[in-house]
Design a protein around this nucleic acid. Structure first.
Lengths: 115, 115
DNA sequence: TTATATACATAAGAATTTTAGGTATTATTT
DNA sequence: AAATAATACCTAAAATTCTTATGTATATAA
């Protein structure tokens, strides 16, 4: 796990959104899914991921179940009720931010453009 | 000046891009332009802006001229040669990151979608 | 005359991430 | 058989970037 740049601030949203789509996932699985979805361009570092998961759990947005698979411990995360509400909120926050970014960075384009 | 959050790291790109479009700008002007372009939704704080400008100047991407306007000091920033190259690089980096973000967060959509 | 706008700046603290380590099992390669 | 990579968790120091709070100073508006 290493190098990307950027991502700062969007990691929580990524975690929550992936869990909205997948019911439950474990940490390592999240890193692999992101790598796969972005053709290896975004690599979630473990030093960023695990503290983020622990924080979301401490905030009551995620719950955990530990399972034994092939003598290896897996810690599965799922959205709580509060977590489910938070996904929507965090997603529209991020979407709004990206739209504003585009307004700043591509001043020629009008609303409703293509990337 | 207050609250935004999200995508820490895009401030440098914003500064460089605005200077690519405007030849020269001073700090306060940048905060106002961003506020105006985003209908007040993104407010660049001075505590973030000035250190960022100083850092870009220290890296040789920006140059400065100080001017007196109505008894008030203004510090105008312009892109250096290196700065001009860096805009392109930073812009495609950010654009690529946003595309990857969309791949993670909107798995239904195919490349070339609308925001 | 008091507050707001313009215009710069810094410094403490918070939040997030990178880098670098650590443990342990299983699978693959040499 | 031994070494490496992959799977799977974790933490801690340092770096980076941002917020919040302050400070200075002039001009304008209430």
């Amino acid at each position: 796990m290493s190098n990307n740049n950027l991502i700062k601030g969007s990691l929580q949203t990524i975690i929550l959104k992936l869990l909205e789509e997948n019911e439950r996932m474990y940490g390592y699985e999240i890193t692999q899914r992101v790598k796969e979805l972005t053709a290896g361009e975004i690599k979630i570092t473990e030093g960023a991921l695990y503290p983020a998961l622990h924080k979301l759990e401490a905030e009551g947005l995620l719950s955990t179940e530990i399972e034994q698979v092939d003598n290896r411990v897996r810690k599965y995360y799922s959205l709580t009720k509060d977590g489910q509400k938070e996904v929507t909120s965090k997603m529209s926050e991020l979407q709004g931010f990206v739209e504003n970014l585009q307004r700043i960075l591509t001043p020629d384009l009008k609303p409703g453009f293509n990337i």
